[in-house]
């Protein structure tokens, strides 16, 4: 599904290996190949995970991350193929993601629907809309986003670098600014904001819409790396990202670290040197998610008014 341009470090190592072909170098090669793969696999998870942090910090459970990613990936592909520009595709993809996040926000904030049920329904809606509009197994091939090639680091999509910025920015926003404080207050108490004369619902809307933009970016990244849209392109990444949010104790840095772990499990999936059937490797991230959740529950503390 993905193409992996060779990392300069890996190429260098291959050359070293030619001279000293020992088992040690082979292990190193695997590691150095896995690192860029892990980064690429983690990026959509980190983006969706950051989205989850915003939404859940404002008190809204967002299981709809999966659907947001799916529909944005779709939006990216039709936007790019219609306009010929990947940037236009990105904007349309994010627009699709935000629009479906808005539906979740209206249902769960204004109408006080059960947030999990609404989120699950949003995921069905995303599947329904994408399959309704694209009845073939895969879409036509579209171009991806610009790759930036940095010396020693390698060539990555510009979204990878943006993700790092967004991670730091989210931390600063949530924990160092008055707006972040308000957003977190919306998730901690049903009353606090209203008593200050501020609207809790407004900050919850902001939280959910932010998750729409971020998970939308994640979906666009998936489609941009794969160069086309397929049914089930997200493969449960939204749910995995939500687990990473819990594992990361609802903070941007720790969530991103958790996403790296899941991204690593995803990267192993593409490891073809071992004779393990692909379907069994596919289970790895899902199993890891379950194990991690068992280990972390009780130690991580959700926002006090999450889901209320």
């Amino acid at each position: 599904m993905y193409s992996f341009p060779h990392n300069p470090t890996v190429v260098l190592l291959y050359k070293v290996e030619l001279r000293a072909s020992g088992i040690g170098t082979e292990v190193l090669t695997i590691i150095f190949e896995l690192i860029p793969r892990t980064i690429r696999m983690s990026t959509p998870l980190v983006l969706a995970g950051l989205g989850g942090v915003y939404s859940e910090r404002s008190g809204v459970v967002n299981i709809a991350l999966e659907g947001i990613m799916l529909i944005s990936a779709f939006g990216y592909v039709i936007g790019t193929s219609a306009s010929g520009s990947a940037w236009a595709g990105l904007v349309i993809g994010i627009g699709f993601g935000t629009a479906i996040a808005l539906v979740h926000a209206i249902a769960s904030i204004s109408f006080r629907a059960d947030q999990i049920v609404s989120g699950v329904a949003i995921n069905f809606l995303a599947i329904g809309i994408t399959e309704f509009l694209n009845r073939k197994a895969t879409s036509p091939r579209v171009e991806g986003l610009t790759q930036w090639n940095l010396p020693l680091i390698g060539s990555y999509s510009c979204l990878v670098y943006l993700t790092l910025l967004l991670m730091v920015g989210s931390h600063v926003f949530l924990f160092k600014t008055p707006w972040g404080l308000r957003l977190r207050a919306a998730g901690e108490s049903t009353e606090a904001l209203n008593m200050l004369g501020l609207s809790r619902a407004r900050w919850q809307y902001i939280g959910v819409m932010a998750s729409g933009v971020l998970a939308g970016l994640g979906g666009c990244f998936l489609a941009s790396e794969a160069h086309y849209f397929t049914k089930g392109i997200t493969a449960g990444r939204g749910y995995v990202a939500l687990a990473a949010v819990i594992f990361g104790n609802w903070t941007p840095y720790k969530t991103a670290a958790a996403c790296l772990l899941f991204g690593f499990a995803n990267a192993l999936q593409l490891e073809s040197r071992w004779q393990i059937p692909s379907q069994l490797l596919q289970c790895l991230p899902y199993l890891l998610t379950m194990v991690v959740l068992v280990g972390v529950i009780g130690k991580s503390k959700p926002p006090a008014s999450l889901g209320k």
């Binding site: 459970v61 299981i63 539906v103 209206i106 249902a107 109408f111 006080r112 629907a113 059960d114 947030q115 999990i116 049920v117 609404s118 699950v120 329904a121 949003i122 069905f124 809606l125 599947i127 329904g128 809309i129 309704f132 939500l242 819990i246 959700p302 999450l306 889901g307 209320k308």
Partner: peptide, 26 residues
């Protein structure tokens, strides 16, 4: 799509849940 919209509508128009515990701890 119909199915998804149906769920969203039904959940939004405050169906009295049989359970008070649903959806509080994800």
């Amino acid at each position: 799509i119909i199915q998804a919209v149906l769920i969203i509508c039904l959940a939004s128009i405050q169906i009295k849940w049989q359970s008070g515990t649903l959806g509080k701890t994800v």
